[in-house]
Nucleic acid binder design. Structure first.
Lengths: 341, 341
DNA sequence: TTGTAGGCGTTATCAT
DNA sequence: ATGATAACGCCTACAA
């Protein structure tokens, strides 16, 4: 087994000083051609590679970025992550991922751990626990230390930092407008509790679209779940009791489960009832019929987040100006919607 | 902005030496109660936390583990990752993820980068490119340096290291046996090219089960794709030309797409044709009917991989004994299979 | 052209 | 009870 070799080994072996070796390997003009040759040859032969940790300590730069997300078994987050990882890689950064598991405590612990020198900056989406609690001190502490932070998707106005979101409100607005244009009258919304910023915005878009088109905003047409967990009974109950000809869902799963149930009831999609779901994931694509979706462009979002972060990291200057980039959602039309006129 | 504070700052501020501060913060008995109190109070007040990088350099231990996987937008890998991250966290390790994107080159580059001190060990699943090429020198180099390595799911016999896999062969064998017990006669296999170790093993189990039950092994009943990419046309073509009453698929997507097509053709599932798919993911669960699946226990697999790796990392002693843990797959029965007698 | 010395932040050993 | 020193691996300003 050949252990990693250091400058010191090379220096000792070749009877020169460490700094000579260091310079020679950087091809410095200061070093004589012959010495340089010997050193470089030896280094190549023994596959010398500088130790990242030592360089990090010296430069006070780790070339690592910390990503903290609520869950990884989740299509949207994985696409964002892919965007981050990909961009970061092109810039020579590695990515350390921590899962908050939707828990405030885990989010805090993970952040503090990483903030002690392991990373140069954070990219994160707030956990449900954090959004519920409304306590952002761990984020403030990190930014106070001058560590750059970019929030995506699940953000909060209270935090001063760069952000990337999609225009959830507009996505919902357009979805409902499409239903209305297709002559749907009873448009339901399936959503989660308000402390998810995304649900809040989507609900706002839903309401606004109804009002703008002179339709009644009826709380009875809203099915609200406390979390992202699915509750089949509540869905059955809702669709048994409520007459509906279109459904906007804040996520895929609620939409798919609902489609399944109404189909079992004998309703036809899209003839009798039409569906649109947020987050164009794998379920939307492979459902029968395919679920028309509001695509969130996760990969693009991750790429932008990484870009914003790395710029801040490498800019050095302590700017106190933060920007929020808002991406426009896109419609992916599939079989679950069709003009009903 | 309050920058991170170091031992040196505290020492200077309190007029003591750095080593006194270091000891006091470790609650060493050597330091007088009064001094210790002052130092600890000051540290608490200024929220002193030791710098991870400096500690890594000193200890030659980063407490990071490197995970290299082909793709993250993939249900199985995310469940494995969750298992890894979770276990690693309980042991005080962080996880650096790199995506090989199924490319040999990216896999090599990422590994070499991380191997230069950033991590204490690797957990990985081989990229398609690597399996195709059959070149494992980058792995040998890493293990030669004494860096522990655990391979999961996509493994290769040529590599000497710890491994975690599921018994793919047995999973396929059982699936086919179930079909036969349900009186299915024409059992198709949808698979990928042989260089995926998992496809190879699953195909072997499929064949073995047929032979053991005195059924003919007919190449005509096998639909083989070059990659994991889906090809709708090939699927349509296959099901139009081939008479089949049961289908085993090496992944969810092929199964779901096939189910969709045969249903559109007017066949009933499971009455006319029955399906079983590998990898019990989100698609299997929400398909209509639900897809009976061979569950791979990704999370467990990740946990075991992390456990094996961390043991090796912390054991120090250079053992040359490697083990392969094989997990037994489990059946998750859903609507896509039913006794047809 | 080559080498020395100091520092990045921490810890451990060995003085005082 | 406290402090000086060296070391982890690398880099670089400054000497020689």
């Amino acid at each position: 087994m050949k252990r990693k070799i250091t400058l010191k080994h090379i220096a000792r072996e070749l009877g020169v000083s460490i700094s000579t070796v260091s310079k020679a390997l950087k091809n410095s003009e200061e070093i004589g051609a012959e010495t340089k040759g010997r050193i470089q040859a030896y280094a190549k032969l023994h596959n010398y590679k500088p130790n990242n940790i030592a360089i990090s300590l010296k430069n006070k730069r780790t070339k690592n970025i910390g990503v903290i997300i609520p869950d990884i078994v989740h299509h949207f987050f994985t696409t964002v992550f892919r965007g981050i990882e990909n961009y970061a890689n092109t810039k020579g950064y590695n990515v350390i991922v921590c899962l908050s598991d939707e828990s405030f405590d885990k989010e805090v612990i993970n952040m503090e751990l990483l903030a002690n020198g392991s990373i140069d900056g954070f990219i994160m989406a707030l956990s449900a626990g954090t959004q519920q609690k409304g306590d952002y001190n761990h984020l403030k502490e990190v930014t106070d230390q001058g560590i750059p932070l970019v929030l995506f998707d699940r953000v909060a106005d209270e935090i001063n930092c760069d952000k990337v979101v999609i225009n959830d409100r507009e996505g919902a607005y357009q979805a409902v407008s499409k239903f209305i244009k297709d002559d749907r009258k009873k448009i339901a919304l399936i959503t989660t509790d308000e402390h998810y910023s995304v649900s809040r915005d989507r609900a706002a878009g839903y309401k606004q679209a109804l009002l703008d088109h002179n339709l009644e905003y009826d709380e009875g047409l809203i099915l609200k779940f406390p979390t992202m967990e699915i509750d089949e009974d509540a869905i059955e109950d809702f669709f048994n009791k409520t007459e509906v000809d279109a459904v906007l869902s804040v996520n895929e799963i609620f939409a798919i489960a609902s489609m399944r149930f109404v189909q079992a009831k004998g309703l036809r999609i899209p003839e009798d009832i039409s569906f649109i779901g947020f987050t164009d994931g794998i379920l939307s694509k492979y459902a029968t019929p395919g679920l028309t979706a509001v695509a969130q462009h996760g990969e693009k979002m991750g790429e932008i987040a990484a870009q914003m972060l790395i710029e801040k990291i490498e800019l050095e200057v302590e700017e106190e100006t933060y920007v929020t980039r808002m991406l426009e959602p896109t419609f992916v039309e599939r079989g679950s919607t069709r003009n009903n006129k």
